[in-house]
Amino acid sequence: MISLKKLTQPIKALYVSTYIPRKCGIATFTKDLTNAINLLNPLALAQIAAMDNKITEILRYPHEVRFRIGQEVKDDYDEVVKYVNETGEVDIVVIQHEFGIFGGESGNLILEFMEKLQKPVIATLHTVLEKPTPKMKEIIRRIGHKANYLIVMLETAREMLVNKYKVDRRKVVVIPHGVPDFPRFTNGKKKLGLYGKVVMTSANLVSSSKGIEYVIAAMPEIIKEIPEIVYLVVGETHPVVKLTEGEKYRHKLKKMAKDLNLGRHVRFVNKYLPLQTLIKYVAASDLYITPYLDPQQAASGSLAYAIGAGKACISTPYLYAREMFDLGCGKLVPFADSEAIARTVIETWKDKQSRVECEGKAYDLGRTMTWYYVGHQYYHLMQHALNKP
């Protein structure tokens, strides 16, 4: 009998990232990604080295987490290096990079970690800054030199890496942000107490960089034309923000809504929702809005989910939204512009033909972003890095 292992050549991969149950978009991303790859690579399931900070030290991680790396603890990084280099239990290391996850100046400990590894490395860059500090630029440039491949989610990010950071173009691969495989034409408003409403949603960990106040300020004008509209702000305050300033921003938003007499037109769902519950809120939405204030944001799981679900999307022109909307699946509004938000929301809802076309383009694009396809692309890239058939 032929051995299944000989046919499939399993890949023993270690992922360095934040990880569930940490309340972090990249933690959820890594769980979804490894679930998808495990289906293709069942004889060598994902191993995780989870990044910890003072907030997450109390968490209990699932069994696949082999190591916990204290953000500023060099010995923890070195322990993982020793495991990778000496045990034969790892073929390749996959790093999910974001500034703020790793220790040292601008996160340079992950660079030191990479330079000690003796196995191939793939790094996903969740942020590629147009205007980096000199230190950040040097770190990304050196990561690009050390890694076998860099994964980004936008063509714009690839061009920045090549032209600004001087990374070898042959090393940079564009793989989209993954999304669940949403069924078409789901609703579910009744179960969420939203039957008969026009639902507009923003779902994310809440912080002042999300620009939610500009949507709330737009609501009085929107309500004049769409009296049945409800704006859902879904998600709890970002844990780091909560640690430094508590619920100051959320209290500001609630006071705005109250002062504008918005009543039930603005609802806060102050919870970090499990994936299946989040999917229900996204599926129940008629409109989806990301009014973010950072022009350099190069990825958004929130917007990716809305596109995957085939929703009519409205967004400020940060990097990720600009490139995704070039494909015709949404409308852009200027940063911090409540009048433009109100006008665009009303236009989008009133023009049904245009909205339906937008929804169709979003859903079609979303089929190319499902975790099934994203997992395949990561897995084949790992095979290529290891010279495996």
Rank of each mutant, 00 (worst) to 15 (best):
residue 2 I to F: 11
residue 4 L to K: 08
residue 4 L to M: 13
residue 5 K to Y: 09
residue 9 Q to Y: 06
residue 19 Y to D: 03
residue 22 R to I: 05
residue 34 T to A: 11
residue 37 I to R: 14
residue 50 A to P: 01
residue 52 D to H: 05
residue 52 D to Y: 01
residue 55 I to W: 14
residue 57 E to V: 13
residue 58 I to F: 08
residue 60 R to K: 07
residue 62 P to E: 15
residue 75 D to W: 08
residue 77 Y to T: 07
residue 81 V to H: 10
residue 91 D to F: 03
residue 91 D to T: 04
residue 96 Q to A: 04
residue 99 F to H: 08
residue 107 G to H: 04
residue 110 I to A: 00
residue 123 A to M: 12
residue 128 V to C: 05
residue 133 T to G: 07
residue 135 K to F: 06
residue 136 M to V: 14
residue 137 K to L: 10
residue 142 R to W: 06
residue 143 I to H: 11
residue 146 K to S: 04
residue 153 M to I: 08
residue 159 E to Q: 15
residue 161 L to M: 04
residue 161 L to A: 02
residue 164 K to Q: 13
residue 165 Y to F: 12
residue 169 R to E: 15
residue 176 P to G: 07
residue 180 P to D: 07
residue 188 G to E: 01
residue 195 Y to H: 13
residue 196 G to K: 13
residue 198 V to K: 14
residue 199 V to H: 02
residue 206 V to A: 01
residue 206 V to T: 06
residue 210 K to W: 10
residue 217 A to I: 01
residue 220 P to N: 04
residue 224 K to N: 05
residue 225 E to D: 14
residue 225 E to P: 01
residue 238 H to R: 15
residue 238 H to N: 14
residue 241 V to W: 01
residue 241 V to E: 07
residue 244 T to N: 13
residue 249 Y to T: 06
residue 252 K to E: 05
residue 253 L to R: 08
residue 257 A to G: 09
residue 257 A to S: 11
residue 258 K to Y: 03
residue 262 L to D: 11
residue 264 R to L: 06
residue 267 R to Q: 15
residue 267 R to T: 00
residue 269 V to C: 00
residue 272 Y to M: 00
residue 278 L to R: 08
residue 278 L to F: 09
residue 278 L to S: 05
residue 285 S to H: 04
residue 287 L to G: 13
residue 295 P to L: 07
residue 295 P to R: 15
residue 301 G to V: 02
residue 306 A to L: 02
residue 309 A to W: 14
residue 313 C to N: 10
residue 313 C to Q: 06
residue 315 S to E: 08
residue 320 Y to S: 03
residue 322 R to I: 12
residue 326 D to C: 13
residue 328 G to W: 02
residue 328 G to E: 03
residue 328 G to I: 04
residue 328 G to P: 09
residue 331 K to E: 13
residue 335 F to Q: 03
residue 344 T to L: 09
residue 355 R to N: 01
residue 356 V to F: 10
residue 359 E to I: 01
residue 363 Y to S: 09
residue 364 D to V: 11
residue 368 T to E: 12
residue 371 W to M: 10
residue 374 V to Q: 09
residue 375 G to D: 11
residue 380 H to K: 14
residue 386 L to V: 00
residue 386 L to T: 02
